[in-house]
Simulated scan of single mutants.
Amino acid sequence: GGGAIGSIAYVAIGRGYDEAAKPRMLALLSTAWVVPGLIGPGIAGLMAEGFGWRSVFLVLVPLPALAALLAFPSLRYMPAGVPSPETRARVVYAVVLAAGSGLVLTGIGLLQPALALALIAGGLALAIPALRRLLSPGTLRAAPGIAATIATMGLLNLAFFGVDAFVPLALVDVRGTSVAYAGLALTAATISWTAGAWIQARTASRVSRRATTRIGLVLLVVSFAITAAVLFPWAPVPVALAGWGVAGLGMGLAFTALGLAMLEQAEPGQEGDASASLQLATVLGSGLGAGVGGALIALMNARGETLTRALLLQDGSMLLIIALAFVAARGLPGRTPAATPRP
């Protein structure tokens, strides 16, 4: 459900707004994800204490219906797209991709080398062909155009969530902070992500998608270096809050710029296919970043390595992913498009 809603939102922005309004709408979309994340946990905590934890889930039941009532009247007037001849086949490829990804993640976490290699090889044999059929042509080699946009989005999310998932672990288990304090680092990234999205919206007419994305990637490099430094006792713990806030700012810039680049490059009527490819790259990248990282850290821990060393290796690996994303971003548009209003 969440994946479908994300794709529909991109399609609605692509078909319903002129070029000048799209950056602001994407920034609003980021805000719509972030604001509930800021106020939701506090409200949920109060409700759980006052009315029990079941009340938190029950109060959410009418919200999808309310959202549908607000969205459906406008969506009915949205222009139809061009049907894809491979719609049914893509469902099968999606199932195959999920199975292959599961095998890879399972294999990475095993201590038996022979079985681990067999599962990883089998998973890749299933996942890679399915991924080629689900993503836009040329995505796996970051061909210039929309393929490079989708490839960069996947690498961006892989790198960010490959570190983000372990920031609380680093602060709580390595530096001895409270869970609440570690949550402040994630909150800082959430707020700065929104700020980055709005900065991108204000500069979209002057700064190219390639430049904005690369600025965001550079900010992630800075943030990863700060996060790695906090693993050592000589680094002040509060630096982690500022460091991970820098990561959120970089994501707000790059993530929104890539979404805008996808909408600008999608063929008329094909926004749905392009949005689905971008969503797939986003979800797959974030899932692999956290999943592979978790398996790697668990494997190193089982072999007697310290948590600090495991986290440093994970951060270093994600820096390499950022380097790949920087190279892939060369295929993004190097100029800002002319803003032409819709008739």
Rank of each mutant, 00 (worst) to 15 (best):
G269C: 10
E264I: 08
G250E: 09
A290M: 08
L241N: 02
G291P: 05
L320Y: 03
G316H: 07
F255N: 13
V327F: 02
Q270F: 00
E264G: 08
L319T: 02
A290H: 05
S317W: 13
L241F: 04
A254D: 03
G316E: 07
A298K: 10
G294H: 00
M251Q: 09
Q314G: 11
Q265N: 01
G250C: 08
S277D: 09
A254Q: 06
A261Y: 02
R303P: 08
L280D: 03
Q279V: 06
L280Y: 04
G289P: 08
Q279G: 08
I322H: 03
G272E: 14
A295S: 13
R330V: 01
E305N: 15
V246G: 08
G250D: 06
A266P: 14
G248E: 07
L258S: 05
I322V: 15
G243M: 06
A295T: 02
L260V: 01
G304S: 10
G291C: 09
A329V: 03
A310H: 04
L319V: 07
L260M: 05
G259S: 10
W244Q: 00
L284G: 09
V327A: 09
L313K: 06
M318D: 02
S277R: 13
L307R: 07
A261K: 04
A254K: 02
L249V: 08
L249E: 06
M318I: 01
G285E: 05
L320K: 05
M300L: 14
S286L: 11
G269I: 09
T256F: 13
L253F: 09
L312V: 10
D315C: 04
G285Q: 06
A328Y: 02
F255H: 14
A295W: 02
L320R: 06
E267W: 04
L313Y: 14
G269H: 10
A257W: 03
A242R: 01
F255P: 08
L258P: 03
L280T: 10
L260E: 00
L258H: 01
Q265L: 12
L278P: 02
T256N: 11
L319Y: 05
A295P: 04
A242W: 01
I297E: 11
I321A: 11
T282W: 15
G259P: 06
M251E: 11
E264L: 15
A323S: 06
T306D: 15
A310Q: 01
S277L: 13
M262C: 07
A302C: 15
L284W: 13
F255W: 13
L263V: 09
W244M: 03
A247P: 14
A261I: 01
E271L: 06
G252F: 10
G287F: 05
G259N: 15
R303Y: 05
L241K: 00
G316T: 11
M262K: 05
A247F: 09
A298I: 04
E264F: 04
V292E: 05
T282P: 07
L313D: 08
A266M: 14
T282N: 15
A242L: 14
E271Q: 10
A290Q: 04
L324V: 05
G243I: 12
A323L: 01
